[in-house]
Each structure stands twice: as structure tokens, then as C-alpha cells.
């Protein structure tokens, strides 16, 4: 049992982080905190992907000089594909954060607060 837990520790870490992030997104009232939750959530998934790509005893995915011409043994190099996917995902995460921050600025300009319940209060008062 212990061995089972240890052998997959990477997954437990990512799941814990992800739950943390998800809780932040749903449970927090402050918009920026929600956004931070979202970032943790995304980073957790990125970690998960990266851990898929790792191989015990392998090196970074850059070929050494002798392996250039098709003789490379895949066991000696990390799996590059998850890294590639995560390059994209990181960019997507940043872009989402950027847009979300933009929206937060708009919200702030309008309500002068970032607490969700206060905003609801203001909106209820103005009848919108």
C-alpha cells in the first residue's frame, strides 16, 4: 500500500493542488482570489502533464551528437509531447488570466469593489 502511494506520488500532488484551485474558484468570494484559484488549478494540470512525460533515468529531450541520425533510444530521453502540449497550455493559461484580469478591471471600474457579495448588493440596489 505504502509503495503504491509512493510510486504515484506525482498524481496525488497534482490532485491535491487541483482540488485546492477548484475550491478557490468556487468557494472564494473575492474575484482576484477566484482568479488565483484558477491559476492553481491550471498549474496543477500542467504539472500532471509534465509528470506524464518523465522517465526514470532519462535525460532532457535534446539529442546528443551521436544520436542525431535516427539511432536515438527513446528510453534515454524524456517524452517531449507533454512538454509541447504544456507550452501551449501555459500560454493559454496566461491568456485566460490576462483576459480575466481585464474583466476584473472593468468590474472594479464599475463597482469600486471586488467582493462578490458587495457587487451583488450594489446590483440589487440599482435594480439591474
Amino acid at each position: 500500500m505504502f509503495e503504491y502511494i509512493v510510486s504515484k506520488y506525482n498524481y496525488w500532488v497534482y490532485i491535491f493542488l487541483m482540488m485546492l484551485g477548484l475550491y478557490g474558484m468556487i468557494g472564494k468570494k473575492n474575484l482576484v482570489k477566484k482568479l488565483i484559484g484558477m491559476n492553481i488549478f491550471q498549474v496543477a494540470i500542467i504539472l500532471f502533464y509534465i509528470s506524464i512525460g518523465s522517465k526514470v533515468g532519462a535525460s532532457i529531450p535534446i539529442l546528443t551528437a551521436e544520436d542525431l541520425h535516427g539511432s536515438a533510444n527513446p528510453l534515454h530521453y524524456m517524452n517531449p509531447l507533454p512538454h509541447v502540449l504544456m507550452l501551449t497550455a501555459i500560454v493559454v493559461g496566461i491568456a485566460t488570466t490576462g483576459v480575466a484580469l481585464g474583466i476584473i478591471i472593468m468590474v472594479y471600474n464599475r463597482y469600486k469593489t471586488l467582493a462578490e457579495d458587495e457587487i451583488l448588493e450594489i446590483r440589487k440596489k440599482s435594480g439591474v
Binding site: S7, K8, Y9, N10, Y11, S51, I52, G53, S54, K55, V56, G57, A58, P61, L63, L68, H69, G70, S71, A72, P74, L75, Y77, N79, P80, L81, P82
Partner: peptide, 21 residues
């Protein structure tokens, strides 16, 4: 974790490693 022969690493990825250059 780190299993070199996990399915994720043996299906598509080897072609990238061998063919990159």
C-alpha cells in the same frame, strides 16, 4: 511515475525522438 515503458511514451513519442534531426 517515471515508468519508461508507459503507454504515453511508446506510441507516438519515439518517432519524434528518433526523427527530430
Amino acid at each position: 511515475w517515471g515508468d519508461p515503458n508507459q503507454p504515453g511514451s511508446v506510441h507516438v513519442a519515439p518517432r519524434y525522438t528518433q526523427g527530430t534531426y
